[in-house]
C-alpha cells in the first residue's frame, strides 16, 4: 500500500517536472537541425517562438551525434526545420524514430523542409560513392546564398502560419521585414564584393558553390579530392599548381575543417586562409544569419582586397 502511494507520488512528480516545462511558455517550440536555419526561424517567429538548434555552430553538420537529449527536444517540438537535402541523413532519422511526435512527422505542417522550392545545384545523374559523399538530392550547402534564405524564410512563415493560424499575420509581416532586410543587405554585400567579381577562390569542401554563383566567384578546386574524402598530398600538389596557374589567393575554411592543411597550401601559394563559418554563433559577435553573411563578405573583401 505504502509502495503504491510512493509510486503514485513519484509518477506525479515526474509528470510535474515535464508539465512545468510544458507550461513555462506559450511560445511555439521550434527545433532547427542547424543554427543557420534556427536564426532565420527566429527572424520569422519573433517572440512567438522559442527556437533551438541541434547542431553546434562549430561542428560538422554532416557528423552530429544523435544524442538522447535531442530525442527529448524533438519529442516536445511543435515544429522541426530540416535542411531537406540529406545533410542530416547520418543522424536525424534515428532521433525522429524515437521522438514519437506526430507534429513533426514527414508531411505534417510542423515538419518544415527548408530546401523546398530552392533549385539545388549538382544533383547527381548517377549514384556512385566512388565519387565521394554525394548527396542524392543535390548540394545541401545552400543557406550561404541570401536568396535561398528568403525561400527558407517563406517556407518557415507558411508552416508557422499553419500551425499557429492566429499569429499568421505576425509571421507574414516578419517575413516581409526579413525579405526587405535581405534585399537591402544583398545590395550592400554585392556592392562590397563587386570589385572581386570573377576572382578565383579555393574551398576546403564543396560548400561555397551557392555563394560563388551569387557573387560571381570562380572556384578553382577544393582541398578535398572528392566530397568527404580527406585531402591527400598528391591532390594538394595538384591544387597548388592550379592555384598558381589561376592566381587564386584565398582558401575558405569552416571551423571544423583542417586549417593546418589549408595553411600548408597557403604557404606554397602565398594565399590567405579565410575563416568563413556558415553557421551563426561560430564567431563571437556573429549571432544571426545577417552577422554570419556579413562576416563571410568581410573576410572575402579583406582577403581578396589585400591581394590587389
Amino acid at each position: 500500500m505504502r509502495l503504491t502511494n510512493f509510486l503514485k507520488t513519484a509518477a506525479l512528480a515526474l509528470i510535474g517536472i515535464g508539465g512545468a516545462a510544458t507550461q513555462a511558455t506559450a511560445q511555439l517550440r521550434v527545433v532547427a537541425t542547424t543554427p543557420d536555419l534556427a536564426s532565420v526561424a527566429r527572424e520569422i517567429g519573433g517572440d512567438r517562438v522559442n527556437v533551438v538548434a541541434l547542431a553546434k555552430p562549430t561542428e560538422d553538420p554532416h557528423f552530429v551525434d544523435a544524442k538522447p537529449s535531442f530525442i527529448v527536444t524533438l519529442n516536445r517540438a511543435d515544429a522541426l526545420i530540416e535542411g531537406g537535402a540529406e545533410l542530416e541523413l547520418g543522424w536525424l532519422p534515428p532521433l525522429l524514430e524515437n521522438a514519437r511526435n506526430g507534429k513533426i512527422n514527414a508531411g505534417a505542417p510542423g515538419r518544415i523542409v527548408a530546401s523546398e522550392g530552392i533549385r539545388l545545384l549538382e544533383i547527381p545523374t548517377s549514384f556512385d560513392r566512388s565519387k565521394g559523399d554525394i548527396h542524392s538530392l543535390g548540394n545541401p550547402h545552400f543557406m550561404v546564398d541570401p536568396v535561398s534564405a528568403k525561400i527558407v524564410a517563406r517556407n518557415i512563415a507558411s508552416h508557422l502560419g499553419q500551425i499557429d493560424p492566429k499569429n499568421a499575420a505576425t509571421y507574414n509581416s516578419n517575413l516581409a521585414r526579413f525579405n526587405a532586410r535581405i534585399d537591402s543587405k544583398l545590395a550592400e554585400w554585392q556592392r562590397q564584393l563587386a570589385p572581386y567579381r570573377g576572382a578565383k577562390i579555393v574551398t576546403y569542401h564543396r560548400d561555397f558553390i551557392y555563394l560563388a554563383q551569387r557573387f560571381g566567384f570562380s572556384i578553382v578546386d577544393e582541398l578535398e579530392p572528392k566530397p568527404g574524402i580527406a585531402p591527400s598530398p598528391s591532390h594538394l600538389a595538384q591544387v597548388i599548381l592550379e592555384m598558381k596557374r589561376d592566381n587564386a589567393k584565398v582558401i575558405l575554411v569552416q571551423p571544423f575543417q583542417n586549417r593546418k592543411t589549408a595553411e600548408t597550401v597557403a604557404r606554397q601559394t602565398a594565399a590567405t586562409v579565410l575563416d568563413t563559418p556558415q553557421q551563426p554563433g561560430a564567431v563571437s559577435g556573429a549571432t544571426t544569419y545577417f552577422d554570419m553573411v556579413d562576416n563571410i563578405v568581410r573576410q572575402l573583401g579583406n582577403g581578396l582586397g589585400a591581394q590587389k
Binding site: I17, G18, P68, I71, V72, N75, N98
Partner: peptide, 10 residues
C-alpha cells in the same frame, strides 16, 4: 515509453 522528464528517460 518515453518519460515526460526534462532529461531523456525511456
Amino acid at each position: 515509453y518515453l518519460l515526460p522528464t526534462s532529461f531523456y528517460t525511456e
